[in-house]
Design a protein around this nucleic acid. Structure first.
Lengths: 88, 88
DNA sequence: TAGTTAATTAGATAATTGTCTAAATAACTA
DNA sequence: TAGTTATTTAGACAATTATCTAATTAACTA
């Protein structure tokens, strides 16, 4: 499984997640939001998928991406743990 | 200001934060927890400092590091936002 | 079936990153 | 003051990363 933290470290990937928040999008629609080639976006999507941050489902000739929140909850709980200082 | 997400992307740096959770530590004590040279740890500490994730205070010949949670709260709120889907 | 569209894979490359050793700085101590 | 200890800075290097172009795969359409 891919590294969630590394996946979140890139601003393009964080923006992709943020776009997917409101509604699912296919790869082309996502790419259109960036000033970047489709293969580059495809690479980012793959990293997000490996980190279990998105799901990909083929629909016809499109691939529709959707947000997966389970892993986000995990790292939020780890962060929340850090903020509860001294309790250890 | 340094990039918080990049700072959190490295496991060594996350472990440093986690160590600082229970109590402040000086650079040498931190370095002793890792199988890595002091300059390497010093570099990691600097990245954490630039990201405002730790504070550094010179005490005699030691430099004592402590956890700063304010930025963590910021990114937690961003993550929490992502998990609240569809509300956009 | 041939052509078009959507997306990914392959391969190259420049930039960034994590680590090291050696040197420098700063503070304490005999 | 000379030596020791703690930490950082400097410089080098290998590995990883983000990006590109070109080629490939898969699905639809006339």
């Amino acid at each position: 499984m891919g590294d969630v933290w590394k996946a979140l470290a890139d601003p393009t990937r964080r923006k992709i997640l943020s776009l997917l928040k409101s509604h699912d999008m296919n790869a082309g629609e996502i790419a259109a939001e960036f000033n970047m080639t489709k293969p580059s976006i495809s690479n980012h999507l793959n990293i997000l998928k490996q980190a279990d941050l998105v799901d990909a489902e083929k629909q016809g000739q499109n691939v529709v991406y959707s947000l997966r929140t389970s892993v986000l909850e995990d790292i939020m709980s780890m962060l929340s743990d850090l903020t509860k200082r001294g309790e250890d």
